[in-house]
């Protein structure tokens, strides 16, 4: 029983990270209908910004950790906005496949630029937050896990508030439902799209920091696997659906952790895709997604 709870806790904290990354895929898909494959590299850059900023603040302090987190989120928001502005925007209006291929190009560019700038060898992420282990019976909870879950939950609630309670959030949903109608009420779609990229990239940066806290070896290719899993999570939950991305991430992280702890651990990465295929066979639009038919 306690082993089950332990694995559940581990799974949820991994899942919370997938969820944070998945939100960025799903939000960008919502407003632009394409998958930003470079998103996983924003996650990696977030971890590296955290690595360098981590050297500037004293280790193991709450304020230092939060400062590093905020810095990485701001840095990545700027990166995401720039990538959209410089690379994707000129291609808008053309076939989606062009943007998709370009996104893969940006992803590779960031990976290899990362290898030049940061070096290809893995680095050890500093313990920026205070570390302690709590024992509940036989259950061990690390403070890092608590941070991961706490920060992820706080960010997701914040996102929900932005999307459903603010003017810019309503505009995001409007652009996603009908970009032309949004323009006709006076929305500058470019501003909303930039905002969406910034928001999604900031969440990916937070994901990168939280991931690095739990798996402290970081390198320029670290985004590939979590990025792919988060992409699967976004599809699983129903691409374009924000609560769906969160749910998909949690499911994927939990299942992966349980498989990793079983005799089938070799297959833990493949299992993610097996789940995806099964769910899409039963629910082609994903768990919370729906194919909406426009009323004419």
């Amino acid at each position: 029983m306690s082993e089950f709870l332990q694995q559940l806790l581990n799974g949820l904290s991994l899942g919370a990270i997938y969820a944070l990354i998945a939100l960025g895929y799903t939000m960008v898909y919502g407003v632009l209908r394409f998958i930003n494959f470079a998103h996983s590299e924003v996650f990696m850059v977030g971890a590296f910004i955290g690595y360098y900023l981590g050297k500037l603040v004293p280790e193991g302090t709450l304020w230092g950790g939060l400062l590093v987190l905020a810095g990485a989120m701001i840095g990545c928001a700027i990166l995401g906005i720039l990538v959209e502005r410089i690379v994707y925007r000129p291609l808008r209006g053309g076939p989606t496949i062009n943007v998709l291929i370009t996104a893969i190009g940006v992803s590779l560019l960031l990976q290899y630029t990362g290898q030049i700038v940061f070096g290809a060898a893995p680095r050890t992420f500093p313990p920026i937050f205070p570390a302690a282990n709590f024992h509940l019976g036989t259950l061990t909870i690390s403070s890092n896990q608590l941070f991961v879950i706490g920060v992820a939950v706080a960010l997701m609630i914040g996102l929900q508030l932005i999307v459903f309670k603010t003017k810019i959030g309503t505009a995001m949903r409007a652009v996603s439902l009908n970009p032309k109608a949004a323009q006709l009420v006076g929305v500058n779609n470019n501003v909303v799209i930039s905002f969406t990229f910034g928001l999604g990239s900031a969440l990916a940066a937070a994901g990168g920091i939280l991931y690095a806290l739990n798996y402290p070896s970081i390198d320029p290719l670290m985004g590939v696997m979590p990025g792919l899993k988060a992409f699967v999570a976004a599809i699983l939950g129903g691409i374009g659906n924000i609560p769906g991305a969160a749910l998909g991430g949690l499911i994927l992280g939990t299942v992966e952790t349980f498989i990793g702890g079983s005799q089938f651990s070799t297959y833990k990465d493949a299992i993610a895709f097996a789940i995806l295929i099964v769910i899409l066979l039963c629910k082609p639009a994903g768990l919370l997604g729906k194919f909406t038919a426009e009323k004419v």
Binding site: T170, L177, N178, K180, A181, L184, V185, G186
Partner: peptide, 30 residues
């Protein structure tokens, strides 16, 4: 639109997943 020229498009194009209230407040976006 900001200059006071408003277009009600063919096929209505209401924001289908938004409530009536949210649709109206989007109309006052500017």
């Amino acid at each position: 639109v900001a200059r006071g020229l408003s277009h009600v498009p063919e096929g209505r194009m209401v924001f289908s997943n938004l409530t009536v209230e949210e649709n109206l407040s989007m109309g006052a976006y500017l």
